[in-house]
């Protein structure tokens, strides 16, 4: 089986700070990957490099056959980045819904503005995806009238409406009250079951343990563990992984 995401030799600096150090990995279609690690280890930056929200300094990213090398410029290069972004959908920690549009408006914005889809067709698709995240009845609500969990589900529907091949989740539940986390994880579980390829930066160890096919453990800009959850949780190879998992499990008790 060929990989749907290929990250090769990725390096990223913030000024003189080396935040991603020679990262390479592959993701198979329908694979669910959770990226975990201490804060500041570069997890979010890695995720944001995959759709070029952050420009990597060296290396290359390929998603569904669209390959972009770091450090290009010009119109053709921008078009390539655009093509790459169309292969991915992204969900942010702080939702980032457009506050001046309704839930449906948010979901159809991509199809209408980016793909040039007629409003009527987009509305059908938008309604379908809102239904899918359990918010069919909230179509006409503005984000300010929705709870955090509902906003994040609309954000997921917005990403799905572009029909991406890979979904990127950047700490999707970190900004939510504990009682609202479940509804977002429920939608993500549904996506896992449908065979969506997913890369998730998360602190939700329960979700990770149950649904991740593979875990990338990051520390100081490097992937130091790359394996199935059982192996990583029960038998971590690296000392730092043990310390991190120890701290997390103590928190959970």
């Amino acid at each position: 089986m060929t990989a749907i995401v290929e990250v090769n030799g990725l390096n990223k600096y913030f000024d003189s700070l080396h935040v991603l150090k020679d990262i390479s990995f592959e993701v198979a279609p329908a694979e669910v990957i959770c990226v975990i690690g201490p804060s500041g280890s570069g997890k979010s930056t890695l995720l944001r490099c995959i759709n070029f929200l952050e420009q990597p300094d060296f290396g290359s990213i390929a998603v569904n056959g669209v390959k972009v090398e770091a450090g290009g410029s010009g119109r053709e290069y921008k078009q390539k980045i655009h093509d790459l972004r169309l292969q991915t959908g992204m969900v942010f920690q702080s939702f980032n819904l457009f506050p001046h549009m309704t839930a449906l408006g948010n979901v159809i914005e991509g199809p209408v503005t980016v793909k040039g889809m007629p409003i009527q067709e987009a509305t059908e698709i938008g309604a379908h995806f809102l239904e899918k995240v359990g918010l069919g009845h909230k179509q006409d609500s503005y984000p300010s009238r929705l709870s955090g969990g509902q906003q994040q589900r609309v954000a997921i529907a917005r990403a799905l409406a572009m029909q991406p091949k890979v979904m990127l989740f950047d700490e999707p539940t970190s900004a939510l009250d504990p009682e609202l986390i479940g509804e977002v994880l429920g939608v993500m579980q549904q996506l896992v079951e449908e065979g969506m390829t997913m890369l998730t930066v998360t602190h939700e160890m329960g979700f990770t343990r149950r649904f991740a096919h593979r875990i990338l453990f990051m520390n100081e800009g490097r992937i130091i563990e790359n394996g199935p959850p059982d192996q990583l949780f029960d038998n971590p190879e690296d000392e730092r992984t043990k310390i991190f998992l120890g701290a997390i499990s103590r928190l959970g008790e």
Partner: peptide
């Protein structure tokens, strides 16, 4: 975050 969300769904600078 508004710009980033818009970039992520493939919008260009003008849009």
């Amino acid at each position: 975050g508004q710009r980033e969300a818009a970039l992520a769904i493939g919008m260009n600078q003008g849009q």
